[in-house]
Design a protein around this nucleic acid. Structure first.
Lengths: 174, 174
DNA sequence: TACTACGTTTAGTAATTACTAAACACACAT
DNA sequence: ATGTGTGTTTAGTAATTACTAAACGTAGTA
């Protein structure tokens, strides 16, 4: 019972789809990335349509999201109107890129609201037990976010998640 | 223009809701946690209904998810039939708990499928360029997951994300 | 035993999100 | 200019997810 490369590829992209969904991205995104990741040559939109079964429209929008995150790169051949896409093979580079992307927009705004709460508390201060309690809690959350923030920034600065770095980190966290 | 504590609290939980949604959890979950986090005493289901505007049913199911993740704890008072809930104040403890939870189930299964792909490739090996390429790529992804896995395991083992640990890590990642 | 006060489950609904199909806009070739 | 091959946008649909309302189960109380 020997499996063909195409079925193996299909299973793989299937798996990536689920991982994608798990992290809150559309599953089609995972599939698109999977197809590109296993292709040794850049693919055109239509080729991706072929491989994934999605429509041009969907792929167009989702691949732009992927490009924004740095997970795929767009290129074009001379004398060919089509765009071509290929996957970023360095996952660590991709993660850094995603973190950078997330730094702005949605998450940042939400985190900022914690800071606002803190300021609102200070500006309307009433000295009693509850205010103290609430202030302490919000402050703790703020501290946590700050720690997280400096960590991700460090991660972004880091060149690669090579074996050496990982083992270094692991040795410290012992 | 002085803001009351209740409106400040409301803004805060609003922010937590958005953070919750950002990480792929229902926004109600963030709201529930927010209410508990800012309460100095454990709250009953009905009190949470009161504060969030959600129904008992929704809160019942979502609070169990929160409890599974270790973000809230359930307790009960003697001679009182009600259950009471309070937020875990140590965020780092919560994160470790979430990581533990995620280790199993969905994500693990998906990651496992990458390993399966690898094995399928080995068991049906055909020596040509494409197989080599695909194998290399899948192997790279596997390595990445392995690195990630040992990191999260280290994080889970770590007691706290205190200032000392963070600075230690940061110094290494220089 | 039946009643009460609670949490849970369930069946249905609302809201959101992912996707399709088709119109559109643009660049290039003729 | 006109036509052709692209990627993009849009309007609508399918699928999924979050939530509600109400039935249900259960443990304690009389």
């Amino acid at each position: 019972m020997s499996q063909s490369l195409t079925t193996i590829k299909k299973d793989f992209t299937e798996g990536l789809s689920q991982i994608s969904r798990f992290w809150g991205f559309p599953k089609g995104m995972g599939a698109i990335f999977g197809v590109l990741y296993l292709s040794s040559t850049p693919l055109s939109l239509d080729e991706i349509v072929e491989e994934t079964g999605l429509t041009k429209g969907a792929i167009s929008t989702e691949i732009r999201a992927l490009a924004r995150m740095g997970l795929v790169h767009r290129s074009s051949k001379l004398g060919d109107r089509k765009d071509y896409y290929e996957a970023e093979p360095d996952f660590y580079a991709a993660i850094r890129s995603i973190l950078k992307e997330r730094q702005n927009s949605e998450f940042d705004r939400a985190v900022r609201s914690v800071k606002n709460t803190l300021e609102a508390l200070e500006n309307n201060w009433v000295e009693n037990e509850e205010w103290n309690f609430v202030y302490e809690r919000v402050q703790a959350l703020q501290d946590f976010f700050d720690a997280l923030d400096s960590l991700t920034k460090a991660v972004v600065r880091l060149e690669s998640l090579g074996v050496t770095n990982v083992t270094k980190i692991l040795s410290i966290l012992k």
